[in-house]
Design a protein around this nucleic acid. Structure first.
Lengths: 139, 139
DNA sequence: GTGCTTGCAAATCGTTTGCAATAGC
DNA sequence: GCTATTGCAAACGATTTGCAAGCAC
């Protein structure tokens, strides 16, 4: 596991390392609560405030993405490469999908005079699994 | 002003009409509070709960979009045609941009087995105006 | 010892809920 | 009169704030 904290000028600490590790090992787009609960056994004194602070730091330094695809559940992704996200409105899970678009941000780009720094492509619908479950219930 | 309430099986009421009118006349992507404040003079008893209920109804019936581009400020758009949104992280305004992408949802589409019902394209950065202001301050 | 990091408790604020009042057919 | 809609007040819950304690160089 290669952590990318120093690359993003983030001074490492036990909490920061564990949170980044968790994000890199679990591509489940966890929210603050899930990260906190998952790490509490290893770091019993870890506070939610620290998780909030750390994620904000990661996002500001470009080491993670904050996903706003679900208005009820802000979640995070350590994979900062260009890809799309899919929210299943049945089970609430967020999946990665390949990015399909014309914008291929390498650094920043200017559209119509506006400086674009970030691109997010969000899809919403019903995922494979939930579709299958629905069919099974009907049949 | 042609309202599209009946088209979306929404029974009209004074509150619903005024809220839809506001959305169609102001393409500023207002949030609940802005809509409520703007309409209070005309509808003094309008409650925020009704604005919440009404917008939820509009979104469920496909008469408006809920934008989650700004995690601190959920906003709404009565223009449901396919277009992208740009959030200026300096002034907080949300602008419309032309949609650039391969997905051209006419109804629903299937990607990798998942049923996609909605596509959102979000850009974040610094808008024209704020860039100009920044330059003026520096010079 | 100085400055950054962490963690607790309290405060904040957007949103939801429960329920009573009202309006429309 | 029945049903849907509205509106108030209270509850809720995610996030932020203030500040004291802890850690690292």
């Amino acid at each position: 596991m290669i952590l990318n904290l120093e690359e993003h000028s983030i001074k490492p600490s036990m909490q920061r390392i564990k949170i980044m590790e968790y994000l890199m090992e679990h591509h489940t787009h966890p929210n603050v609560d899930e990260i906190h609960s998952a790490l509490s056994p290893q770091l019993p004194t870890l506070s939610k405030t620290t998780v909030y602070n750390t994620l904000k730091l990661f996002v500001c330094q470009g080491a993670a993405l904050m996903l706003t695809i679900d208005d009820k559940n802000i979640c995070f992704d350590a994979d900062t490469s260009l890809h799309a996200h899919f929210l299943c409105t049945e089970c609430g899970k967020v999946y990665d999908l390949p990015y399909k678009g014309e914008m291929n941000l390498l650094g920043s780009e200017v559209i119509d005079g506006n400086l674009v720094k970030e691109v997010h492509q969000y899809y919403r619908g019903v995922c494979k699994k939930c579709l299958k479950n629905k069919k099974n219930i009907i049949n």
